[in-house]
Design a protein around this nucleic acid. Structure first.
Lengths: 195, 195
DNA sequence: AGCCTTCTTGACCGCGTGGTCAAGTGTTGT
DNA sequence: ACAACACTTGACCACGCGGTCAAGAAGGCT
């Protein structure tokens, strides 16, 4: 869109994105109409199209913001940590904590991955995450703490565990997120059989 | 729906389900219209509503059929195998093989999990799969081959790895499915660090 | 042959959708 | 005071959607 926004404008924009994200998460992207979104925050339809070109752009912006935010959280979490295994652990914990704080984003991510129009963006985000873990795994292989297997496969394993456990946790919420993180880390490092 | 169908009728029904599944997988559920489906197989719209009450029922039937088929494949795969760890391994291999043979179903499953109306069915299917792995894990804990950690968490880890690696494989298809299965099994059993 | 059932047709319906726009209201800088 | 700009309104539009139905064709019994 590209528009000069005042502070008030930026707030409205954010309000639209937040409300829409919540509705998308609860009802699905397609079933949630633009009319529903603007009614939900009590403004006219024109407001929506003042801030966004289309419903599709809105959704893309939501995804972009989420990706950026999650990635920042991960980066911060393993700061200058030298041990690659520990870096992986910190990454897992950061992801789970972020997802816990942004619960509604998980179904949105899942949906976005299934639609042709959003899949490329999701794929790119995923690739960045994989590349990150791959880097740590390669370091770990070099210093002998991780066994020498295709790092990309291992990285996908780590992401798969994290993803699945976060979904399980968000569904059942029987334990707190740190316990889940402990389990995820243990599973990724030593599998079912343990050390 | 419940209707007495001749052999010809059953074929038409299956044809509709197969074509619709392919379109849903490629285009998404909502963006694929009933008109598009009937045009795709060259029949009038009435045919669709002769075999199904609604687009939603069609999709539900597709999911049901897929679940049944996948579950049968898993059951067959570990037949009478006594070793629980080996049963888990065979389950993983069966799932990956099934997903390889029914590639288009993965995006459908993912989508179904995000829509309120289909999520319960998906959750039930998932629970069955989890329960299955949990059973094997409990057996493994009893005979000491698997460490004593919440079996449900471990089971979700296994499913997460399988899921993610199958998605990676379907996207990139760099190696054959059996190699992916080897990697998945190794990761689940011994994690990043290895035995 | 006749008849009942299964199957097929496609025009049609009401509705809600994403998106537009001419007109108007606040707000801010000069 | 005035102009320039940021924002808001909501009726309106064309369109395509899921779903219906009266009419008929095709099969398969007896």
């Amino acid at each position: 869109m590209e528009r000069r926004l005042t502070a008030r404008g930026k707030e409205r924009r954010q309000q639209l994105m937040d409300f829409a994200a919540a509705r998308f998460a609860a009802n699905g992207y397609h079933p949630t109409s633009v009319a529903e979104i603007v009614q939900g925050i009590g403004v006219g339809k024109g407001v929506f199209y003042w801030y966004f070109d289309s419903k599709e752009e809105l959704f893309r912006e939501i995804l972009k913001e989420a990706h950026t935010s999650m990635r920042r959280a991960q980066r911060v979490s393993y700061g200058e940590e030298p041990d690659p295994v520990r870096r992986i652990e910190l990454g897992i914990r950061a992801s789970l904590r972020w997802l816990d704080e942004h619960r509604h984003m998980l179904p949105l991510f899942q949906f976005a991955a299934t639609e042709e129009q959003f899949a490329p963006a999701m794929r790119r985000g995923q690739e960045v995450a994989v590349a990150d873990v791959v880097r740590h795994i390669k370091d770990g292989i070099v210093d002998g703490t991780i066994r020498d297997v295709d790092p990309e496969v291992l990285a996908n394993g780590v992401l798969g565990v994290t993803n699945q456990l976060s979904r399980m946790y968000l569904r059942e919420r029987r334990s707190n997120i740190d316990e889940i993180a402990d389990a995820a880390v243990a599973f990724c490092l030593d599998g079912l059989r343990g050390p």
